[in-house]
Simulated assay, not measured.
Amino acid sequence: MKLRRTSAVAIATVAALGLAACGSDGGDGAAAGGNKVKVGIKFDQPGLGLKTGATYSGFDVDVANFIAAELKLEVEFVEAVSAQRETLLKTGQVKYIVGTYSITDKRKADVSFAGPYFIAGQDLLVRADDTSITGKDTLNGKNLCSVKGSTSAQKIKDEVPGVNLQEYNTYSLCVDALKSGAVDALTTDDTILAGYAAQDANKGQLKVVGNTFSTENYGVGVKKDDTEFCNQVVTALKKFIDSGKWEESVKKWLGPANYTPGAGNPPTPTCQSA
């Protein structure tokens, strides 16, 4: 399996947010020549964080761009693979991460979070003709795919010991394995699964089971104990929510999959650290 290179291949300046360059409309723009920072996002999550050529699109991209615009930052997007997120922040390789990053006590020991800005739930993606998998209690003996370093993988390990868990580096590899029959299901947040199910290449082939079994609080990851910056991000997130841009972005990117945000949305973000 070929690993994806964690590197930026294009610079998306907030001045150009417009937001055609990034394929997003999540911010009001900021003056060029501001502070340049690297920001971690996902490159392979349709509807959330997707890189297509030099274009970035999705709800998380809108969030990342809005924060940058509010703080007058010039951003360069970097791929933040799940298993590498804490390292990217601890070593200063990125200023912040917006990439379906669930807030957990374990992670708060290493990084701080501004959030939650969205509340999701763990679910299952299966082939459209599969009627044998209806929830996590039907996974015994099944081949299940998830991503290394994700909370979804850890929950399955803890709660369904009879499942054959296969951990890949990206969700797109899991989707490929599911379509080919190499695995029986993919587990992660329902937002991510809905994005894949709605892709043109997957329509009619995959379906979300629709039986969530966790609560995932998405936060913006920042360097641990950088309280000043964390509070600045919280202020930006509150404005994103209160201005109506949160709702607009959710409808734009997740609405086509008939996805409706669950209870508690939109949430009230705070700065969180262990």
Rank of each mutant, 00 (worst) to 15 (best):
Lys38Gly: 05
Val39Met: 01
Val39Gln: 02
Val39Phe: 01
Asp44Pro: 12
Pro46Gln: 06
Gly47Lys: 04
Leu48Trp: 12
Leu50His: 12
Leu50Gly: 12
Lys51Thr: 06
Thr52Cys: 03
Thr52His: 06
Gly53Arg: 15
Gly53Pro: 13
Gly53Gln: 15
Gly53Ser: 14
Ala54Tyr: 09
Thr55Tyr: 14
Tyr56Phe: 13
Tyr56Cys: 10
Tyr56Glu: 07
Tyr56Ala: 06
Ser57Glu: 11
Ser57Thr: 13
Gly58Lys: 10
Gly58Tyr: 08
Asp60Tyr: 04
Val61Asp: 03
Val63Met: 02
Asn65Met: 13
Phe66Ile: 06
Phe66Glu: 07
Phe66Gln: 11
Ile67Met: 05
Ile67Gly: 01
Ala69Ile: 08
Glu70Leu: 02
Glu70Phe: 07
Glu70Cys: 06
Val75Ile: 10
Glu76Gly: 12
Glu76His: 08
Phe77Arg: 04
Val78Trp: 02
Glu79Ser: 07
Val81Lys: 02
Ala83Gly: 05
Gln84Ile: 04
Gln84Ser: 13
Arg85Met: 09
Leu88Ala: 03
Leu88Phe: 06
Thr91Phe: 11
Gly92Pro: 00
Gln93Asp: 03
Val94Leu: 00
Lys95Asp: 00
Val98Thr: 13
Val98Ala: 12
Gly99Cys: 10
Thr100Lys: 15
Tyr101Gly: 02
Lys106Phe: 15
Lys106Thr: 15
Arg107Phe: 01
Arg107Pro: 02
Lys108Val: 12
Ala109Pro: 00
Ala109Gly: 08
Ser112His: 03
Phe113Asp: 10
Pro116Arg: 09
Pro116Trp: 04
Tyr117Pro: 00
Phe118Trp: 08
Ala120Cys: 06
Gly121Glu: 13
Asp123Trp: 03
Ala128Arg: 05
Ala128Leu: 02
Asp129Ala: 14
Thr131His: 02
Thr131Pro: 00
Ser132Gly: 11
Ser132Tyr: 10
Ser132Asn: 13
Ile133Arg: 07
Thr138His: 14
Lys142Cys: 02
Lys142Trp: 09
Asn143Met: 10
